[in-house]
Structure formats: structure tokens, C-alpha cells
Design a protein around this nucleic acid. Structure first.
Lengths: 172, 172
DNA sequence: CTAACTAGTCAAGCAACCTTTACTATGTCG
DNA sequence: CGACATAGTAAAGGTTGCTTGACTAGTTAG
């Protein structure tokens, strides 16, 4: 990357722009966070594609965001919406779609006749297991790629990060 | 998978459903990938919020996805669209918006009178540096949280992962 | 009992992000 | 030159993922 090209681009090249260029490149290269984001995004895309192929359902990102918040004993829609940080109407639509796919079921909450518990259907549990199975397959790949020690380190570091971020979000 | 249905869900479950529950919980807990995705998502959300506060521009996710694909010497819209995997019209709209914010500029490509090079304006480079500065601040936090050795390990592991995923994407 | 609250649904609408279709201007190849 | 490909723009529209507002049915406190 020559500075003359940058000068062309700006139409008024200066040493300042060259300094920016150097600094940009340097920072880009060493940003652990950017690397982390990029790695996670690439792996996530592949995991979703792989899972879709495996369970053959039009599961979208919003659905996969929803699923981990559903307790196995069932969760009320309002509670689900609260956990997701969206309105109950928005959560309801996602549940509708997953229900139409046969992944989820709405059953009456015995404790409150107004409420329903959103829970996994038998098929949903099976699909979830298969989805997690996909992740396990990928994790096996990762172990082959990184080695057992680094995979364990990644697990430990990710756990620490998640805990810290969640504590920050809760505390303010 | 054909036994009681609603009953499982309500917690009056059969041994089959209990087995699923156990397995689900176990897999959820140990999935390094899920942890990685979650950590990256939480950190990314915080980084975008922080950067927005800092540079005071309505930069959206699509914009931050676009920016890393712009070479400092300038990149043609068509090439940008190809790298993003979207149509040139979609890429064009994002460039329009970033141009309106003063982040980007379109300059004629001296090599082809039809083409224009999308490149950073001086202000855009400054904003980019500040955005990266935000990441650096967060990385300093991370070092305090994880320790220098783990931060370095994370950097090394993320680099390996990105390289492997990109090689996979290129190769097929 | 009744007033206020809560769970869920229905309907309309909006912003973000992308597409398809159609077009102009320029470059390239015979 | 003439046919065709390519860079970019313009306009219209679709999908996703959310919102607000209005409503029904059931719960709870005074």
C-alpha cells in the first residue's frame, strides 16, 4: 500500500494521512477483540448453516436467540420477552413460528389460568439435541485444530468473559 | 420420542424426558462454542454502544460490517459488494449513508472512468481510529480481567480460528 | 364486589437491510 | 463501427424483527 494511492484517494495527501494509515493498520492487526468477533461470527455462520441442513427447518437467528431462554419445564411468554429484552408481542411471534415448526408447544400454566408455558415439544427437544450435536461436532474439529489445552483455555476464557459481561449488564 | 408430550413439558415427565433434560443441560454447560458466541456477542454489543457514544454518529451494524472491507487506497463499489456478499445496490446505500455522515468519500477511479473508489475521508479515518481506540480501551479491561497470558492466548487462538475458517470458506 | 393489574393476542406500522428490475455511461472485443 | 459486458445509480418492493395501541380473559387487593 503506497502513500501515493492514499493521496490520490484523498485528493490532498498529507503526512497526517500517512500517519493515520500506519496507525490504522497497526491497530487493526493487533486487536484481539476484532479477531474474537470475526472468529465467533465465522463459526456461528457455519454452525447455523450446518444445523439448518441437519434439522431441515427454517430456523433463523432470532429463533436461536430465543431458544436458550426457554426453561425445560416451560417459560411464560412475558418472562421470555423480559429475558430477551423485547416486547411480549415480538417474543410471541417467534414462539408462533417455532410452534408452527413443531419445535415448541404452549401449554396452560396450572398456576395461572391466564398464562401459558412455552416449552419444547418432544420434536423440539430432539432438534435441540441435534443442534447441540452439530456444535459438538464442530468442537471436535476445534480440538483437532487447536489441541486439547487451547480448547480448554478457550472454554475457561470465554466463561470468564461471559460472567464479567453479564455481571456488568446486571449491575449497570 | 413418542411418549407423553404435554406431560413431559409440565414436569410430570417420563424417564425419557428426564434423560433428554439431563443431556441437554450437560451439553449446554460444556459447549465451548456457545460460550464463545455469547462472549463475542456481549462484547460486540458493548463495543458498538461505546463507539456510538464516542463518535456521536448514527453508525449501524451494517456500517461497521462494511468498513473493514474498504481498503485505505479505496475500493470500488462492486468489489465492496462482492466482499460483503450483497448486491452493489445494497452496498451503495450503506456507502451513501456513510458518505452523508462524512466518513467516506467517492473519488473517480483514474483507471476506469465508469468506476469510483470508495475511501475514507480524513474525518472517517479519525473516527475509525477512535473506534479502534474504544476497542483498545476494552482490551485493556480484558487484560485486567484475564491477565496478560490469557489475553495473549485468546489472541493466538482467535487468530488460528479466523485463519482456519477463512481457509475453509475459500477452499470450499 | 369492583377497581386495578397482569398474561396473552390481534392489528397496524416502522426501520433496517436486502432484493429485483430498469436504466445510463463507459470500456472492450470482433 | 457495433455488440456486448461492466460500473454505478434509481426506484420499487419484500422480509425480518421489532414497536405501539387496543383488546379479552383471568387475578388480586381494598
Amino acid at each position: 500500500m503506497s502513500s501515493s494511492e492514499v493521496d490520490d484517494c484523498l485528493g490532498a495527501g498529507s503526512t497526517l494521512s500517512v500517519a493515520y494509515e500506519d496507525e490504522l493498520e497497526a491497530q487493526k492487526a493487533r486487536s484481539t477483540l476484532q479477531l474474537l468477533f470475526r472468529a465467533a461470527r465465522l463459526l456461528n455462520e457455519r454452525a447455523i448453516a450446518k444445523t439448518q441442513k441437519r434439522i431441515k427447518l427454517p430456523v433463523r437467528v432470532a429463533h436461536t436467540t430465543l431458544l436458550p431462554h426457554i426453561d425445560l419445564e416451560g417459560t411464560r411468554l412475558t418472562e421470555l420477552a423480559r429475558r430477551l429484552g423485547v416486547t411480549k408481542q415480538a417474543a410471541g411471534q417467534l414462539v408462533d413460528e417455532l410452534e408452527a415448526m413443531g419445535m415448541l408447544e404452549r401449554v396452560p400454566d396450572p398456576a395461572d389460568a391466564r398464562a401459558k408455558l412455552v416449552c419444547f415439544s418432544p420434536r423440539g427437544k430432539k432438534a435441540l439435541l441435534e443442534g447441540l450435536g452439530t456444535l459438538q461436532d464442530m468442537e471436535a474439529e476445534l480440538e483437532a485444530l487447536l489441541g486439547r489445552a487451547d480448547l480448554a483455555a478457550l472454554h475457561r476464557i470465554a466463561t470468564t468473559l461471559v460472567r464479567a459481561e453479564e455481571a456488568r449488564a446486571d449491575g449497570g
